[in-house]
Design a protein around this nucleic acid. Structure first.
Lengths: 164, 164
DNA sequence: GGCAGGTTACTCGGATAGCGATTGTCCGAGTTGATCTGG
DNA sequence: CCAGATCAACTCGGACAATCGCTATCCGAGTAACCTGCC
């Protein structure tokens, strides 16, 4: 699995606690996590296409949550980044080889594929149980107070005050 | 996910229904599915390393199940091919950036990682519910009788009788 | 003081290279079965 | 006819290239704020 999921999940968490009404530029978000700015923005763009984030161009623009944090699940984020397609790809190898028949002869899907896809669905169902709001709540409980205050201050200060 | 899992699962299924006591060479198994022989053998070797298959060299050698089909789960096969490591890799990006603290300040694991890993565990648990015996039972029920008979005949005939 | 227009700077989105992992291939080491010879 | 040694062929395992997707980057199109000048 690509690391884009991790970046996207953390970015959504930060946007959930960022001051409401003010968009956060991708470059600033990347600075917060010390990530490659252009690459993070690629993933943020995927989240926008999925309807999870809203992007506003121009000065004072940036990214913001398109919906309440309670309604955004990890499943949506993963599917926005990794794609909605199945992870296991069935190539119907049972139809190949000297004993294989034509595709019409197989009314049901391959048992291997069904089992793999059922497991994937269990995975997606588990991901659906966690929302961005849950992640924020966990962070509020477990992240050291010092970082929480530093993050709050950093999010409030203007974009160019950080240096020295 | 790589296609090796699909090949490995189907190969195990065939070995489960193959005549007991006779090993099946990798090249012949590849012929059955019209797969690249050398590449399939690479995956079969991983299954051997995992203790799922037993390989015997020399004439009349080949691969065979190392344990009863009821005791081999899809989880074992997937982990043998794709590795036992976590699919989601947490890089602790919360520790990075201007607000990050030293690693000692974080007693618990990142919430994102915990949620992702919990979902993975649900996935693995679902995979563990399906055994090779289950896959064989499904195939016996759903695969066309014609192919089942052809496959049985093909498995019984000697390695060089197939051509013309 | 209020407003319109132009300028400017900032934002995002898509097209463009680099690298690692999966895919695919090959050859050598080892082992077993068959064969041939001698008794 | 039987035992033993030799031979040969078949097997697997690991080392070696090619291709695809993730990683990382840059530049252009578009937009909203800002500043200036005028009424």
């Amino acid at each position: 699995m690509g690391q884009g999921v991790e970046s996207a999940a953390h970015a959504c968490s930060i946007l959930a606690v960022a001051p409401r009404g003010r968009a956060l530029p991708g470059a600033r978000l990347a600075e917060f996590y010390a990530l490659p700015p252009a690459y993070l923005r690629k993933h943020l763009g995927q989240l926008v296409s999925a309807g999870i984030l809203a992007a506003t161009p121009g000065p004072a623009g940036g990214y913001a949550l398109a919906r309440p944090a309670e309604e955004i699940t990890l499943r949506e984020i993963v599917e926005a980044i990794e794609g909605r397609g199945r992870v296991f790809r069935c190539t119907e190898i049972r139809q190949r080889g000297p004993t294989g028949l034509s595709a019409d002869c197989y009314p049901t899907r391959c048992g291997v594929a069904r089992a793999m896809w059922a497991a994937e669905e269990a995975w997606r169902a588990a991901l659906e149980e966690t929302t961005i709001a849950d992640l924020v709540a966990i962070a509020r409980r477990e992240v050291p107070r010092e970082q929480q205050e530093r993050a709050r201050a950093w999010l409030s200060e203007s974009p160019s005050d950080g240096g020295a």
